[in-house]
Design a protein around this nucleic acid. Structure first.
Lengths: 207, 207
DNA sequence: ATGGAATTGACCAATGTGGTCAATAGGAGA
DNA sequence: TCTCCTATTGACCACATTGGTCAATTCCAT
């Protein structure tokens, strides 16, 4: 049924998908209104249900569609060639911030999907829908250069500390930036301080 | 109007408050149903609206009522006498875990209140409702013993790292414990590993 | 027995829902 | 111009559920 939809003008496709994404993102499945979606997409009710048989199907389509966009953009980046754990995690943090800036609605959508309580949806939203994310997450810590660590250091725990620190710092920065219409920022200024934290931890854990 | 309510049998009070707390916690203001609340509290519709003039008033009452419970329990504990930053933050982390275990619904309620989008409520839920939390949070870092740190260390950043680490570790533990009906746990076993992280950071930042 | 408070639950108007379908518009090919 | 098919419309529907009311009843202390 959705194959018809994909033959539509790209622009109309986008209008529909974005309208739906936003509605679901900030109301969740149950409270999201198909009436609102068609209104803000500028199409008729009938058309929406012509392409998607029902609300649930639309919701699940969005899920698969946008996770692909996000993951493609995230993993074509070359972070994983970098074997120094600090550099890699810093790059990942910055790249994540860029994505959050570029597609905030998608992040909101998955955040709300993660806590979705609607009885209609939570059974369909099998763990497989989140598997991709889980697997992606674990790749972050693969193939790290272990030779740089001091002898006798518990490396896994050191990496925990490093990643919690960069995550904490990243959240702090992002919560400060949130809402700013500062689209030209490439975060170099915002993340300058990250290097201070990194130096402190390098001194502690690296040779 | 709520003064009448406080003269009720404690047990009936609790039934009503808990029913409402749970309903709001996992549905948010709009989707929460007063019908469900009275059903699960075992009272009639009329009685609920006899004590609380309307849904909004009930919601705001819950807000003030439970934050007090939480804060009282949290701040009568003596964490703030401890001036060693590691000990203090570890105590706080454990105490927070206990509270999350003891009152998970209250945490869920405030989590959902924090992201509440209902137009009816978000204007009433002024920042003042969260001020208490913010002020409490800042107390966590007051009056720390600074004499233990190495010379030349950026102490604020070191404290950031320590607190992000303990927070990260605490979240990891709690997400593993979540849902377990393990009421006798006092977390000493779960948090044993915390000392390893603490030692690593002490070696880095303390004299 | 009396009076006042606590409590009930049937009832209501209102709103908004997801989804349908007969009707129309648009445009490509003849 | 006519045909035919698809894209698109939006009025319409049955239904569920909502927050809130209120006259009636139960309870109980005096």
């Amino acid at each position: 049924m959705t194959s018809k939809f994909l033959n539509l003008h790209k622009e109309k496709q986008q209008r529909i998908l974005n309208a739906a994404l936003n509605e679901f993102a900030n109301k969740g499945f149950d409270r999201a209104s198909t009436n609102e979606i068609v209104k803000s997409a500028g199409i008729s009710k009938g058309l929406l249900f012509h392409y998607f048989n029902n609300k649930k199907e639309l919701y699940l389509f969005l899920h698969e569609y946008f996770i692909e966009i996000l993951m493609k953009e995230f993993f074509t980046s070359e972070h994983f060639a970098e074997r120094d754990v600090f550099e890699r995690l810093k790059k990942i943090m910055i790249s994540k911030s860029h994505l959050m800036k570029k597609y905030p609605e998608i992040f909101d959508f998955y955040m709300s999907a993660y806590i979705e309580t609607s009885s209609e949806i939570k059974n369909e939203l099998t763990s497989s829908h989140f598997d991709l994310m889980a697997r992606s997450y674990s790749r972050i810590f693969e193939n790290i250069d272990t030779s740089k660590f001091k002898e006798g250091i518990d490396m896994n725990k050191a990496i925990d500390i490093i990643s919690w620190t960069l995550e904490g710092y990243g959240n702090q920065v992002m919560s400060g930036v949130k809402g700013l219409r500062n689209s030209e920022a490439d975060f170099t200024r915002e993340f300058a301080e990250a290097d201070v934290y990194i130096d402190m931890l390098k001194r502690a854990f690296y040779k």
